[in-house]
């Protein structure tokens, strides 16, 4: 991805997070905790598990549809980050060749099963993380982290990072464009030019930090970054948490997928 593509991509995700749907309105703490529980449950399935993972797709699909998040956008983002997991996982079919299942007479090796399991877990975990940020604004995530016990200093500077992320990306984009305009078609940026470009951006950043500090002092800054608590856990949040826990517990403990399959077979065969 080029710089511009990444910039617009992150901007789009950021804008989605400020939508107003009932998923967006849930307390950020509830969403953070639910997401973490979901992630742990998904990766707690053993190496060769495939079919039992199927019901878990309900979680991202519900968040995505109720939260009005475009599915193709999320899928595209998932594909972009998939190489590492695929790269490591693809060795399994070649190294673990014991036959695990015979489907319609075709033997399927354990390696393929574990690879497929990695892919499913990848899709579930990455989509859950993306949907958390697509349905919760970053400042809200930070406030949730603070109230879940993360150090104040860490959260404060994380909020500053977010605030100046877009400002600095735009600044970087201006520097890159200015360089491209004078490079007459030589597209690539060499290491030396790159170092100077980053150095320039760095100096501007430090100057900006000074100005921000002055602005903070001007408004009475004394070392703490104060914010008002804004959210209260409501009945809807508790219901959401309870539903998530029940969902995860049921589909982690019972092999629902196979049961459904068995019932279907009995009915139709």
């Amino acid at each position: 991805m080029t710089f511009d593509e990444r910039y617009f991509d992150i901007g789009r995700l950021d804008r989605l997070s400020y939508k107003d749907t009932c998923v967006h309105r849930l307390d950020p703490r509830a969403k953070v905790i639910a997401t973490v529980m979901f992630l742990f449950t998904v990766i707690s399935f053993p190496k060769y598990e495939v079919v039992a993972l199927a019901p878990f797709f309900l979680f991202p699909v519900l968040l995505m549809t109720v939260g009005e998040i475009p599915i193709l956008f999320i899928v595209k983002k998932m594909i972009i980050v998939s190489p590492f997991a695929i790269f490591i996982g693809i060795f399994n079919p070649f190294l673990d060749t014991r036959t695990a299942v015979v489907i319609a007479g075709i033997p399927v090796s354990a390696g393929w099963l574990s690879f497929l399991s990695i892919l499913l877990k990848f899709a579930l975990t990455i989509s859950a993380a993306l949907l958390l940020i697509a349905t919760t604004s970053f400042p809200a995530v930070c406030h949730a982290l603070r109230r879940l016990g993360f150090p104040a200093l860490f959260v404060s500077q994380l909020l500053f990072l977010y605030r100046y992320l877009f400002v600095l990306m735009e600044e970087a984009m201006r520097i890159i464009r200015a360089r491209e305009m004078r490079s007459f078609g030589r597209r690539s940026t060499g290491m030396k030019v790159f170092a100077r470009l980053i150095g320039t951006l760095f100096l501007r950043t430090v100057d900006r930090a000074d100005r921000i500090y002055y602005a903070m002092l001007s408004r009475g800054f004394q070392g703490d970054v104060p914010t008002l608590k804004r959210s209260r856990i409501a009945a809807a949040d508790l219901a959401f948490m309870a539903a998530t826990v029940a969902f995860l517990a049921v589909f982690r403990s019972f092999r629902v997928t196979e049961e459904i399959g068995r019932i279907a077979q009995e009915l139709f065969l």
Partner: peptide, 25 residues
């Protein structure tokens, strides 16, 4: 006091800088 905004802004700087690619000779 100066450190909190400085850390935040430098974080944004690293993030932006990591988005710029350069060519490996």
């Amino acid at each position: 006091d100066r450190l909190i905004p400085l850390m935040g802004v430098l974080g944004a700087f690293i993030f932006a800088a990591q988005m710029i690619n350069f060519t490996i000779p």
